[in-house]
Design a binder for these strands. Structure first.
Lengths: 215, 215
DNA sequence: TAGATTGTTAATCGATTAACAATC
DNA sequence: TAGATTGTTAATCGATTAACAATC
């Protein structure tokens, strides 16, 4: 806890991909993998993979490679997937509902306790067991339910107001922000942005300018 | 057209952010901006900004800075936002509907001509004027309507099958993929992934390991 | 003209790749 | 033991920052 962020962001962003492929291998019943084979799957070089993993410890064995189950668990632990998180979603439109509905997040330990909205037509509805509540109740709800992650799926106009409620609650440690806006938050709160606009514009750049690109 | 991808991916991924802030400045009626001021807004260094922009031409003026309107238009042109694109969405669940509903994409020139699904309960419904059609009709629809961009919002199990239809249509030039899977496509087709899982796991990493992180 | 700020080159920093000794 | 593959160091490559002459 609270140790320094010593490992670079570029390394961190590759970990989830390792985790995904290791999970797939696990499901297939494969119990051994070399950095070279992982390289073929992920597209990263074998050298890079070994170096990435060695930031966190020596999980492999010379002459053998890596044990899939062990490595999957270790990478999961590094990513903080060895526990559950309570979350709430602010903004109950299609995007909010899509996130609430996504089984994959729940399986990974991210529990959506409630959605929130200010639209009276939505308040009271249920999305897969999860109720949509009045956003005015959100701050108290966060306090009462040990919510650590706040998800913003509102229009950009409301994003900072929502962030301010998260901050005020003094419980939210991380914000997953889908609004195309850069939030102002105190340093101890982590923000991860999903800027769909930026992703789409990158696609259109490559459409116009290049023949070859993937990822 | 078809020129080489000479500018690095890291530069390209910063362009949409410039574009967004320039748009905001434009709306505010500000017509002049220095690299230093842009630096404050975007968080990139002034030096980096000047170097990024000079990959594409000298848009500034010594002693003055950049004209907001001119730079906004130029960056938009670089990103391929100076024209319209026809798109279709495969997968008409919440996520597909969210993308179809998002006004921001339409404003940027990305027209959703149709959604597709294989669920008979969804086929025939309309999302904001846009009809959900049987996925079996998708390939022909793409051909008949000059669709260049295919959007995948299906479960990961179906993602490659959808990609294969896009490929077979011989019209799709770019795929915007929301499924947590890496698609196999021929080299001339561009794939831009939105891997929400990876984004969420990155957030949880920083929650566990670090106090300070933003973006 | 003087002040400001770009465009661009050079210096630094960090990330990736290559190589190989260690060792299972 | 011989073969394989890691962990780790050194070499390369690329991206960022610093600096400043050019010039509006």
């Amino acid at each position: 806890m609270n140790r320094e962020c010593k490992v670079s962001l570029t390394v961190i962003r590759r970990l989830p991909k390792y985790y995904r492929y290791l999970g797939e291998l696990l499901n297939k019943g494969i119990n051994r993998i070399s950095s070279q084979e992982l390289s073929k799957l992920t597209g990263f070089t074998a050298s890079q993979i070994r170096q990435d993993l060695n930031n966190f410890g020596g999980f492999g064995q010379q002459g053998y490679g890596y044990n899939v189950e062990e490595l999957h668990r270790q990478v999961g632990k590094i990513l903080g997937l060895d526990r559950d998180y309570n979350t709430v979603i602010a903004g109950s439109g299609n995007l909010g509902q899509a996130v609430a509905n996504y089984k994959g997040f729940e399986d990974a330990g991210f529990k959506v306790l409630s959605l929130f909205d200010k639209n009276p037509k939505l308040i009271g509805l249920k999305i897969r067991e999860v109720e949509i509540r009045d956003v005015d109740l959100m701050e108290q709800f966060i306090r009462d339910n040990d919510v650590e992650i706040g998800i913003i799926t509102t229009p950009k106009e409301n994003a900072q107001d929502i962030a301010d409620i998260f901050i005020k609650s003094e419980r939210i440690k991380g914000i997953w922000n889908f609004a195309p806006a850069d939030l102002k938050v105190p340093e101890h709160i982590v923000v991860e942005n999903v800027h769909l606009n930026e992703s789409l514009f990158t696609l259109s750049y490559f459409l116009k300018n290049c023949d070859i690109y993937n990822s």
